[in-house]
Design a protein around this nucleic acid. Structure first.
Length: 741
DNA sequence: TAATATTGTCATATT
DNA sequence: AGAATATGACAATAT
């Protein structure tokens, strides 16, 4: 048996956890408010309920255990889905619909940029938001560029393919599992929590059911990846054939700003011709992305590394690494001077790299230490990438660790998230099955926010006093499916027999139902079997019918009279005496002419009427009044305790829901980051594509060190000298800094 | 028998 | 003002 004290204590702990969770929420909200307004509602709903919880409003029914009204949960579910779809929408680059116009606004044949400002090119590019993706930049640098990227992406009209969804699911699942673990480990109360056990059973089911989903994509994606990799004959760039980058029109502006249709064709033809249908391309992209995601997951072994430090085999993550130094980046910059900003990203597309994730992560880890040779061999593709890109570009991209703007996304990876991620890593290390995880995630999502919704159930609110209502507390009571069992267990005086009708009466202080109470009470004591419904209430089977008249007990509690013979009558009487409450004994001693049941449960008027019918001594009247008072208080105490218990259980449920929400938000956050990474890569690739095909009036390619493409707000792309780009970049850099200070 | 859990009772506050 | 109810604290009882 579990003690109520323990329960209370646990409830308090849960409440504390809840508060802490709320604190976390603030952070999350800050990050996601713009994109995810509903999240705030989801979280605030339950939290607000706690502050306003009033026991008066709680139903005293223990029913509803295991009952999960799903209304709110569905909201959460759909909200999450919608948000995810939005995120994924960002991921889809539909370049074909984008019109790219390259204008040569200003020409600087002298190449002063490269000469006077050797590193300016880098700075410029990073500021424009392109370079950071490719470069071995550290976290700081990356952060600065990221903003520009997202904006640029929006300008490009990026739309998300469902591809990323498949990839991220696995990750999400893993995170989910971790979270579940966390919850399970932290929930000591589960031992006696009936509902909790049910949940656990559900989880087990989920684990069993969800084995089939994930296996399919990984293998296919690898093939698709290899098949999609192309190397551009002219530039040497390796890029994915599925690359949706279909530039509808690229206009090179000569100094006179006249269009050059020839260039347009030259640019577009290679991209558009020979590519497969858009659908296939997207599918292939999905596969590719999925592989990259998988790679990232497997490579990451330490909690903090997962997003912040880019593991050697995870080029994607390098973009988000907060740690200044990443082994692979260092190696690249030091030993492969030619490695271009984009080269690293493109390395992902190389079959070698792709094959890595398939292998166990252990193979990758040994490479982490600054072992240039191993890295080179492992990431041979990077060498190729370096060759593909002009040296100038590479040089600029390589290492510019100047004062950079903090990555706007960097804030997303706060301490809390680190913890979460670490958990995820642990789960991975412990051999969690991604397939199961995915399955869990599905179930998990569907269940999230259950209690939240239930807390808002109208019926519960209307129950007692309209003045204030604690949504959380009322939720459980609203579910009256198991009302009968719980009620009978504690012998609760008809209070909760009919939650709906009684509540209304109670609100008005009506006592009309009380005459029924004795019946309920008797029945409840009569039928101990019902007590077993709730494990922690089994003990309630004791007969505490102190206030019940002996006559009532005779009919109700005694075994069949036939079995009792004359000799047993005395025993029976003794038994009855023992069964009687103290007040009943007193009443009998005082020869009270009516039952305690009536004394206690009769309405005032009837009670007074009853008293008037008899000639009672002062002592008798006093005893009757005490009996009535004590009896009512007894019921009140029972109800009070029941309400308290409900409140605690509801709080516990709310905590679980909040934890679920937190996990979900975390998953979404990770997914956001992942999408952003992918988008940056795509934009970088597109940039290289477009820039590499630009030709001046003499048919010669522009030098990356002297010119740069710049995205305009209207979606167009301008070819401008790096000097100008540099200036603009600086301007953009300062603004955010100033705002912060 | 000790420890724990449950229930009853009282005092008090609230409705 | 009085009755009913709620609730914390403690006692009594049961397991």
């Amino acid at each position: 048996m579990l003690s109520l004290k323990k329960y209370l204590t646990e409830g308090l702990l849960q409440f504390t956890i809840l508060l802490s969770l709320i604190g976390v929420r603030v952070d999350v909200d800050t990050y996601l408010t713009s994109q995810l307004p509903p999240l705030r509602e989801i979280i605030l709903g339950p939290s607000s309920a706690y502050t306003q919880t009033q026991f008066h409003n709680l139903r005293n029914t223990l029913d509803g255990y295991g009952v999960h009204p799903k209304s709110i949960d569905l909201d959460n579910y759909f909200t999450a889905r919608r948000l995810l779809s939005q995120v994924r929408a960002l991921d889809r680059l539909q370049v074909p619909t984008t019109e790219v116009n390259a204008w040569l606004v200003h020409r600087d044949p002298e190449g002063s940029v490269s000469g006077s400002q050797p590193n300016s090119g880098l700075a410029l590019e990073s500021s424009s938001g392109l370079q950071d993706v490719t470069g071995p930049d550290n976290g700081v640098r990356e952060s600065e560029t990221e903003q520009g990227f997202s904006e640029d992406l929006e300008d490009l009209g990026a739309v998300a393919p469902p591809v990323s969804g498949d990839l991220t699911k696995e990750d999400i699942d893993l995170i989910d599992i971790l979270w579940r673990q966390d919850i399970d480990l932290g929930a000591g109360r589960e031992v006696f929590d009936y509902s909790h056990r049910q949940k656990e059973q559900d989880v087990d089911k989920e684990l069993q059911d969800g084995g089939e989903r994930e296996d399919t994509w990984s293998g296919e994606s690898a093939e698709a990846l290899a098949r999609d990799l192309l190397v551009d004959g002219e530039t040497g760039e390796s890029f994915s054939a599925q690359f949706p980058a279909a530039v509808s029109s690229i206009t090179e502006a000569v100094p006179s700003e006249s269009e050059a249709p020839a260039l347009q064709n030259s640019l577009l033809s290679p991209l558009l011709t020979g590519t497969e249908s858009p659908f296939d391309l997207e599918q292939q992209w999905q596969d590719l992305m999925s592989i990259m995601e998988m790679q990232a997951m497997e490579v990451n072994t330490s909690a903090n590394e997962i997003l912040y430090d880019a593991p050697p085999g995870d080029p994607l993550s390098t973009n988000y690494s907060l740690a200044p130094n990443t082994p692979i980046n260092q190696n690249v910059s030091l030993h492969q001077a030619s490695l271009g900003g984009c080269s690293q990203d493109f390395s992902l597309f190389s079959p070698e790299v792709e094959s890595l994730p398939v292998a166990s992560s252990s193979t990758l880890l040994p490479l982490v230490p600054s072992n240039s040779t191993s890295l080179n061999s492992t990431f041979g593709s990077t060498n190729l990438a370096g060759l593909f890109f002009p040296s100038q570009l590479n040089g600029t991209a390589n290492d510019t660790s100047g004062p950079e703007l903090p990555d706007p996304l960097g804030g997303l990876l706060d301490e809390a998230m680190l913890d979460e991620i670490s958990l995820m890593d642990l789960a991975i290390e412990e051999g969690f099955n991604p397939v199961q995880a995915s399955q869990l995630e599905e179930e998990f999502d569907s269940d999230s926010g259950l209690s939240l919704d239930s807390s808002h159930s109208p019926s519960s609110l209307s129950s007692s006093e309209g003045s204030s209502s604690s949504s959380s507390s009322s939720s459980s009571s609203s579910a009256s499916s198991s009302a009968s069992s719980s009620f009978s267990e504690e012998g609760a005086v008809g209070y909760s027999s009919d939650s709906e009708t009684l509540d209304l009466e109670e609100a008005e202080g009506a006592v009309g139902y009380q005459p029924e109470y004795s019946k309920f009470c008797r029945m409840s004591y009569q039928d101990p079997s019902q007590l077993s419904c709730l494990p922690y209430l089994e003990h309630v089977g004791h007969n505490h019918t102190y206030n019940m008249a002996p006559s009532a007990l005779d009919s109700a509690d005694l075994p069949p009279p036939s079995t009792l013979k004359k000799g047993s009558k005395e025993k029976q009487a003794d038994f009855l005496d023992k069964q009687m409450s103290r007040d009943e004994h007193r009443a009998r001693a005082m020869k009270i002419p009516f039952t305690n049941d009536k004394i206690i449960n009769l309405p005032v008027e009837e009670f007074n009427e009853l008293l008037s019918k008899y000639q009672l001594s002062e002592a008798q009247l006093s005893l009757i009044r005490d009996i009535r008072r004590r009896g009512k208080n007894k019921m009140a105490a029972q109800n009070c305790r029941k309400r308290k218990l409900d409140t605690i259980l509801n709080l516990e449920r709310d905590v679980e829901d909040l934890q679920r929400d937190k996990a979900r938000l975390l998953r979404e956050k990770v997914e956001f980051l992942r999408s952003l990474r992918q988008m940056k890569q795509k934009v970088q690739s597109l940039y290289q594509e477009v820039f590499g095909r630009l030709r001046d009036e003499n048919g010669r390619p522009y030098s990356p060190s002297q010119y740069a493409l710049q995205y305009a707000g209207d979606g167009s792309v301008l070819l401008i000298p790096r000097t100008m780009a540099d200036q603009q970049a600086r301007r953009q850099e300062r603004k955010p800094k100033d705002r912060r200070k």
